[in-house]
Design a protein around this nucleic acid. Structure first.
Lengths: 211, 211
DNA sequence: GGTAAAAGTCGACCGTGGTCATTTTTAACA
DNA sequence: TGTTAAAAATGACCACGGTCGACTTTTACC
């Protein structure tokens, strides 16, 4: 048999991940030791490290699994005909709620995603692309519909919104805003971004955009 | 003598910080052990921990010292009469260059500042305020001069720019942009923010801002 | 100075994350 | 089935970050 081996590996990996979810949820990330986790998963300590390079990797793997699920759900649920503004609020709030539901996981995940070790940057680009893939089509449609200026590149637009999302999370983690205030804050920031910071009469002498 | 005691403590603290700077610079943060550091500083291991709660705290303390210096320099050097746009570019690029000069320190610093442990959030608000204090007066003057819309709250404006700054660093740490491209990217994002994402003819049906 | 309490220092000690030589399991072939 | 080489699992082991009670120095008061 050729499949049995691979199948077993998958099963072991799942067992380790399951143990991780269980123990991290109960005791938190830092208070869970790898040996304890290995025992729960029914494997040796070394085995854990042959599936995950690092304790953090284990957490990130779990987070990414969960996020993928959230993203799929979002893709099927968002109303493609609503205004861009509203679609973005929906998407961002879903992400926000997921990340902040378990602050400890979310924090470690975002720390690694936003400011990755340079060597691992490549790996995370992929993960972030998931996020960009979500809002990319929304913004594209927005440009087609004339809700968003067409002279800006889509990538830069995505970046702009990602920036606002980062700020939202930062504000929450720093206790500047409570969970209940998040949506209002997001809308305020979006409004600023849409309308623009300068008065509409101003001369845009600095508007030489870059690729 | 009453001062001797305090003076001695300061001296010890400086010695520890100095050892940290030296060893971190040579071997990096993770490869420097506390016992090694303690030996270099000429104190016991426990003493290090009576001055700094954690190994990370040690690094953050160092970073904050350095940042303070940068901020002072900036306050005296920026041209208060230049357009807001240009002043902001100057300030942000200075910060950017400092943070990315030593990627490892900058990374750990930003990780902790942007997504702090909830319990320590209070402590870091202070640190961030330094940043806001830098751009607050610039934006205020911008509003007075009519370069920036007056219907937005200054705090939200600061937030908007901080968001862009975070994105810039993120893009750099993720290898999306190189050091040499940073300023151009920053200008592009600023332009987007100033001009606004929606066409100037669009109806702003969503413009109910929040406090 | 003598002395007792408070402040500061110390390094042996603990549990941890991570490694690696060794052992066990699997797959392939005669 | 028996043999063997590769793949996978293992846990003793290591260096580290951080703790703690024992120890030394400083202070304040007589």
């Amino acid at each position: 048999m050729h499949l049995t081996r691979e199948a077993k590996k998958k099963k072991t990996k799942k067992a380790i991940l399951a143990a991780a979810v269980e123990l991290f949820s109960i005791n938190g990330f830092e208070k869970t030791s790898i040996s304890q986790l290995a025992k729960t998963a029914g494997v040796g300590k070394g085995t854990v490290y042959s599936y995950f390079k690092t304790k953090q990797d284990l957490l990130l793997a779990f987070c990414e699994d969960e996020l993928e699920y959230i993203h799929e759900q979002l893709n099927t649920r968002t109303n493609q005909d609503a205004p861009v503004f509203e679609q973005l609020v929906t998407v961002f709030m879903a992400e926000f709620e997921y990340v902040t539901r378990n602050p400890e996981f979310g924090r470690l995940y975002m720390q690694e995603i936003v400011f990755p070790k340079k060597l691992l940057a490549e790996k995370h680009k992929e993960g972030e692309n998931k996020f960009f893939e979500m809002i990319f089509p929304i913004l594209l449609k927005g440009q087609e519909r004339g809700e968003i200026r067409q002279e800006f590149e889509l990538l830069h637009l995505c970046g702009h919104f990602f920036a606002i999302y980062l700020l939202l999370l930062h504000a929450w983690y720093s206790d500047f805003i409570a969970t209940s205030e998040a949506e209002a804050a997001l809308r305020t920031l979006f409004t600023q971004a849409f309308v623009g910071l300068q008065p509409s009469t101003a001369t845009t002498h600095h508007a030489e955009a870059q690729s």
